[in-house]
Design a protein around this nucleic acid. Structure first.
Length: 111
DNA sequence: ACTCTGACGAACC
DNA sequence: TGGTTCGCCAGAG
């Protein structure tokens, strides 16, 4: 994993989330080794738009599978639309079958 | 240099 | 059961 800043590290993980899958801020934070630094992950996502490369922030939700950060997208509905477009069903700002579409960075990237 | 604030999460009360 | 507090730590004012 090549990363200079904590933010890049977060973006890197976010980009590795497979299509049709999602992960949580906490999972990423844990993967990064901080464990409880989920807030930093969310904070990093806030700056995701400033990145050169596109960051699928819509694939990152909180541990309840709720689209808490949708308000930070260009349009609040965008996040849900992108997820549904990938085959993820969203109901009331929450991901359906969250446990099944959940993607743990530690499992795929082999911590 | 200090304080406040988070797209979170878990512990507490 | 649900609201509040604390921990995490970096960025902005």
């Amino acid at each position: 994993m090549i990363a200079k800043d904590f933010f890049e590290l977060v973006y890197e993980v976010a980009r590795h989330v497979p299509k049709g899958r999602v992960t949580s801020y906490g999972a990423i934070g844990k993967y990064l080794g901080s464990g409880r630094s989920a807030r930093m992950v969310g904070w990093a996502m806030n700056a995701a738009g400033s990145q050169k490369k596109y960051v699928p922030a819509h694939r990152v939700v909180n541990r309840n599978g709720e689209l808490t950060g949708r308000h930070h997208f260009a349009h609040p509905k965008l996040m849900q639309q992108l997820l549904e477009k990938e085959g993820i069903k969203v109901k009331k700002d929450r991901i359906v079958n969250f446990e099944k579409v959940f993607w743990d960075p530690g499992e795929e990237l082999k911590l």
